[in-house]
Design a protein around this nucleic acid. Structure first.
Lengths: 101, 101
DNA sequence: GGTGTTGTTCGATCATTGTCGAACAAGGGT
DNA sequence: ACCCTTGTTCGACAATGATCGAACAACACC
């Protein structure tokens, strides 16, 4: 099963934005930004594991995350450096949890 | 016909991102960022005027643009100041046209 | 008033996508 | 070998969304 992690420069901006434009995925990205590398199972946001796996696939194929196997788990991490280099400010703008202010 | 332009702070981030995660709308936003205020009709990106109107509505309701009537036309402009204040770096990150690198 | 321009709204259609349960695959442990 | 844990994949289904033509509304101009 190839991880299928694209070159970020080859991913259209709209794909990156679409990947971030979902509540569950945004929560995953926030968790990764705070906690660093994490196992897929650690993201329990009221969705089934099938759905979670789907979201992680979307994030991976949009170039936002990398995945590596570790035993029976898979560890996911944000491609923060690349993202900040290619889209400076994007993650920072999106990651900060905003109060309903 | 109420313009229905929401307070930006009341719009979920995912809505803002979703509004930007479309090729036609991104072209509109880019055109607005470059040319300032423009009439709806000036955005001719291979879609019908019904579709164009739809996209402008999405942008407006996501808090990205403001619209004002001017004769039979409607002038649209980017809410850049507000966006830059609430999501610093977002527009800059997204607006720059990237070559297929 | 009539005509033309500019947008919006209304169905309708079609593609995309978020969601789930169930089946499957790969490891680890005993 | 067996089982349990962890994820992925496979349909299937429902909801959303992009798109269009046609009808409508508002305004300007003659």
């Amino acid at each position: 099963m190839e991880p299928h992690e694209p070159d970020l420069t080859a991913v259209p901006v709209t794909n990156v934005l679409a990947a971030l434009a979902d509540d569950v995925r945004l929560q995953i990205v926030r968790a990764l930004a705070e906690g660093g590398e994490a196992a897929c199972g650690s993201f329990d946001f009221g969705v089934s594991k099938a759905t979670r796996s789907h979201h992680l696939k979307v994030l991976r194929e949009a170039g936002l995350t990398r995945t590596r196997a570790a035993g029976t788990s898979r560890l996911v991490r944000l491609r923060r450096d690349e993202l900040d280099k290619l889209y400076p400010g994007l993650l920072d703008a999106v990651l900060t949890q905003r109060p309903p202010a």
